[in-house]
Design a protein around this nucleic acid. Structure first.
Lengths: 338, 338
DNA sequence: GAATGTAGTGCAAACGTTTGATACTGTCCA
DNA sequence: TGGACAGTATCAAACGTTTGCACTACATTC
């Protein structure tokens, strides 16, 4: 900050321009209350002195800052980095800075980070928060909040609903002849994981097929890869993974076991990130990261004049299926010799 | 921030504890100047009132904040997200928050972002900065800076030097029999790109082989994939890519052209991120993202008592080769029928 | 020609801290 | 008994803004 070099302040500009501090301040924040001539003069002097207002002093006096915080469990997940990039670009367009923080999937780290952020930002976007409902509510008392991909009653919540898309996917798999499906779960604390799991098991049951939920692993590529033996053991002919990261890890793990996707096993992912990077491309559901990133920022910055009814506190974008090459009919059963 | 709820202040605590504001302040910032009894009493009251100091007021008065900024050209590049995570975790351990910003590979966005950040942070880590030397120097006057993977005279610069590792890689390729190598470049403004390009062409020339530098593409997976036809056309039997992202894109692009890695063409990457995710695993050079992230933070936070000699302004970590499955001997030339 | 209105500008308080200077209270020693 | 000296605690100024209020000067109205 300063100390390093004497930043120019309102006072410097005021002296140089021969006006009062308030006048300089108003030249920037409230120019219509000044004569056009004064405004122009002040702005010229300010530009010459390379003045720009000190955001921390401004934040202190106005009680609000031009920064928002964005908290994510894991920024190396491409879904999150895409969302962050979108949110950031969008905010910049509105003169708002984004304070991004990674919590390493850890609820208590998340809490610390949020407390820290709450006092320096105008609001927080919490992505896939791992905190307890209680803590989230508590935080919401302190600072405006938008929850992404999680719903907590009474707190603005924005998520991508992929129920319909997952139904569609299950239907396609069953229609292709799959009778034994598996679900590869994401982080246990994840709200989204519960949603996806529920949607899938509901539809699989409705279609009279069988679903086994695999043991939960690290929500990473390595985690997905490591789960491959477990998948084979389960006897499933199609695996629906929590997200693309797990799905692509699984595909690689299966390959190492000489099991080919989609010939031997079908695999689906979620979020449509990374899914086109691997071979074969993975059939997935869009996660709408870009759109959600922008919407979250907009909502957070919205004037809270809107009604507070429960329905107004939930916003949804719909996911849809993206078909790539990781799904096929199950291998025809080869009767093993008795 | 506040306005939403009445944050408790020093004043509130002071009243509740029956002491002066300064005493409360010192209970936190300078407890040895108070009697132990007072300190304990104040801290109890403060805890009961859930008080914690307002960082913006503190920043204003002390002229320094407990936040640092970290600026990256593209956070979705796994090298950068790994570095960010490391820097952030490390900073948190030291009570420092990290303000992360993505510049979309754009020098002018970067400049804006830095100016904005400069006034609210105690220092900036600029990763693979795309700004001009002039702008960087200008910024360094304003605020403590650490440059990562770029060297500018007079400004603290930290980078991973992979010259030796690249020499080693070139040697291995040539020793395997490759005579026609290609370099797939990264972003043109990238300092690292120049370094890698120079090291490779120097060594290839020294070994009497031929090197063609491909046209530069978007530094993304899609960019690498799209360059595959150009690679085939070049006649090279081994391609050294700027980084793993490009390398893995290229492998996929080649596969789509029915060209197998490493049977038909050898490919190497750089940074050791993503390189194990794809098939085949890509032979690469470590980028030391985690170590660099931590070192950068440490350096930025160091008391600047050290000498300012030129040598003290450069810190280096060495890259080393990681061998995976993407390198082999060139295919034996099949004489086409006349 | 006095009263009123209005546009432009300045004064000073406030935001929540930190911190050097200062005041208070004992204790100890001469 | 008085003075010196710690050890504690308070006072008040400062950081760089914003903003309600007051003030000036001039134009307009009666």
């Amino acid at each position: 900050m300063r100390k390093h070099a004497g930043h120019t302040t309102l006072k410097d500009v005021a002296e140089a321009a021969g006006v009062s501090i308030s006048t300089v301040s108003r030249a920037f924040s409230n120019p219509e209350r000044l004569s056009p001539a004064t405004v122009q003069h002040v702005k010229e002097v300010a530009a010459r002195l390379r003045f720009s207002v000190n955001p921390v002093a401004k934040a202190l006096i106005t009680g609000t800052s031009s920064n928002i915080g964005l908290v994510v469990p894991d920024i190396s997940n491409p879904y999150m980095s895409t969302l962050l990039k979108a949110a950031q670009a969008h905010s910049r367009g509105r003169g708002i800075g984004v304070f991004a923080a990674d919590t390493d999937e850890n609820a208590s780290t998340e809490r610390e980070v949020c407390d820290q952020l709450a006092k320096q930002t105008r609001g927080l976007v919490l992505c896939s928060s791992r905190m307890s409902v209680t803590h989230i509510r508590e935080l919401a008392e302190l600072i405006p909040l938008v929850l992404v991909n999680r719903v907590v009653k009474g707190v603005p919540s924005l998520y991508s609903d992929s129920t319909a898309a997952l139904y569609e996917l299950v239907d396609e798999l069953v229609d292709l002849g799959h009778r034994h499906l598996a679900y590869m779960p994401g982080p246990v604390q994840s709200w989204t994981n519960k949603q996806r799991s529920r949607a899938i098991s509901k539809r699989v049951a409705a279609r009279g097929a069988e679903l086994v939920t695999l043991a939960s692993t690290s929500p990473s590529y390595a985690g997905g890869r490591a789960a491959a033996p477990q998948v084979l053991e389960s006897g499933a002919t199609a695996v629906m993974a929590f997200d693309d990261v797990l799905a692509s890890g699984l595909v690689e793990g299966l390959r190492r076991l000489d099991c080919s996707v989609p010939r031997d096993i079908s695999v689906t992912g979620h979020d449509d990130v990374l899914a086109e990077l691997v071979y074969p491309g993975i059939t997935t559901v869009t996660g709408q990261s870009v759109r959600i990133g922008r919407l979250a920022v907009d909502w957070l910055l919205e004037d809270p004049i809107g009604d507070d009814s429960e329905s107004a506190l939930t916003r949804v974008v719909e996911g849809r299926v993206i078909r790539r090459g990781s799904v096929a009919a199950p291998p025809s059963p080869v009767s093993s010799p008795p």
